[in-house]
Design a binder for these strands. Structure first.
Lengths: 216, 216
DNA sequence: AAAAAAGTTTAGGTTTGTCTAAATTTTTAA
DNA sequence: TTAAAAATTTAGACAAACCTAAACTTTTTT
C-alpha cells in the first residue's frame, strides 16, 4: 500500500496533468502547499516505485500504475462527496475537506458497497464524473458559459472553480447543477452576462461565466 | 488536533482501564503491537499534553480531557460499524478493520449527521453502547452465559471476544444480538452448556459461554 | 533480605516527510 | 549568445514514531 502523502502526490499529479501533459515540481509544490525540495524527494520515491515517469528538471507524468491509483482516489473522493450531500444533507460547498480525509480509507469493498448503496451515481455534487469500479468514466462535453453566444440554451453541469466562496455565490444565485439557463444578453462593456432561468434572471461577471460549465 | 498514533494510544488506555484502574506500559505495548520503549516515548508526550496521568514505573490513567477524546473516538468507531452493517450490509465480523480507519475522520459535524441519519442508534453491531454527542452512554447490565444457571432465560446483548473467528462461529450457530435463549442444561463434565433458541438447540463450550453476554 | 526475574525507561538509531540554504540546470532577455 | 532570472535539485537538519540494547526500578522468589 501507499502512504497518505504518496496518494496525495499521485492525485495532484493527475489533476495537474489534465491541463498540461507534463507536470512541474513547482506546480506540485504550490498545489500541495509544500516546498519544491520536498516535492523532488517524493518524486524520486514515486519514480522508484514506478508510479511516475520522472526525468530531473523535465517534470513528471503518471505511469499506468500511478494513474490507476490516482483515479481510484478520485473515485473515492467523489463517491464520499455524493454521500455527504445526498444522504447527510451537506451543501455542495461544505464537503471538500471531509472528502479529502475519506478518500484515503483503504477498503475497496467498502467503496463498492457505498457506490451500490447510492445506486451508482455518475456525477458528484459539483458535476465531476465518478469513475466506476474499473476506473472508467466519461467526461461530458462541457464549455464555460462565457464561450456561449446570446440566445444559447444550456444546462449547468459543472464548475471550474471548486472554492467555497464561488460555490456559495452560485448557490445564492440559484445557479446549481442541473439548472437550465438561457443567455439573454452579453454586456459589451465588461462582457458580463445576463442569464434567464426558470423563475428568475441573474447577471454574472465574465469571471463567473468562465468558471460555470454547461452542456448545450 | 492529535495525531493518529496519539488517538490510538488514548483509545487503548481507555479500553484497558475498564478492567484495571491503572494501565501498564507492557499492556499497552501488547495491545498496540509495539515495543515498551515506544510506549514510554508516547506516554511522555501524552503527559506533556495533559491527556494522561503518568508516573514513571507506575502506569497511566486518562485525565478528563484524555477520556473525552477516547470516548469520542469510540463513538465514531461504533457509529461507523453500525453504518457498515445496517446500511452497507456488511456482516458483524467484517467491520472492525474499516471502522479502525473511519474512527479517525475528524469532522464532528459529519459524525453527528451520520448519527442522525441512522436515527441515533444506542448499540453497535456487537452490542457495545454508542456514546451520544456529549459522550454519555449507559452500559447495560450484562453477564456471561457461563454465569447463568439451568432454566435461566436471557437475551444475547453482547460479546466479550470481538475476534472474527468467534463472531463467525456465533453467526453460524445463530447466536446473534437480540436472540432469546434458555439454558436447558449444563454438562457437569466440561461445563459446556445447552441453549434452546426459537427454532433450534445448540451446545456451546465453557469458553464460548464465557464470551457471550446476556441480559436476564 | 538478598538475588533473580519481570517490567520500565534511557540512550542512541532509523524512516518518512518535511524544511532551509546552497548548488546546479534551464529558460528568458538583453 | 551570453548574462540574468527562474526553476530544480542536492546537502544537511528536524520532528514523529518507531526500533534495539543497555540501564535502571519494582516485584517476586528463595
Amino acid at each position: 500500500m501507499n502512504t497518505l502523502a504518496e496518494e496525495n502526490y499521485l492525485k495532484s499529479i493527475y489533476h495537474l496533468a489534465s491541463n498540461a501533459e507534463m507536470v512541474s515540481t513547482n506546480q506540485l509544490a504550490a498545489l500541495l502547499n509544500t516546498k519544491a525540495s520536498s516535492v523532488t524527494d517524493m518524486l524520486k520515491k514515486l519514480a522508484d516505485k514506478e508510479l511516475i515517469n520522472y526525468t530531473p528538471y523535465q517534470g513528471v507524468s503518471l505511469t499506468p500504475a500511478g494513474e490507476r491509483i490516482a483515479i481510484n482516489i478520485i473515485r473515492k473522493h467523489r463517491l464520499w462527496e455524493f454521500f455527504l450531500v445526498e444522504k447527510l444533507n451537506f451543501k455542495w460547498d461544505e464537503v471538500h475537506e471531509m472528502a479529502e480525509e475519506l478518500e484515503h480509507i483503504s477498503s475497496t469493498e467498502l467503496i463498492d458497497r457505498l457506490d451500490k448503496f447510492m445506486d451508482y451515481p455518475k456525477y458528484d455534487p459539483h458535476g465531476d464524473p465518478i469513475p466506476d469500479c474499473n476506473g472508467k468514466f466519461k467526461v461530458h462535453d462541457l464549455k464555460p458559459v462565457s464561450a456561449a453566444e446570446t440566445d444559447t440554451t444550456g444546462v449547468i453541469c459543472g464548475v471550474r472553480d471548486h472554492s467555497t466562496p464561488f460555490l456559495q455565490y452560485l448557490e445564492k444565485l440559484g445557479l446549481t447543477i442541473g439548472k437550465k439557463i438561457i443567455i439573454v444578453d452579453i454586456i459589451e462593456f465588461d462582457r458580463s452576462m445576463v442569464l434567464k432561468m426558470e423563475t428568475q434572471t441573474v447577471q454574472i461577471s465574465r469571471e463567473v461565466a468562465n468558471n460555470l460549465l454547461i452542456t448545450l
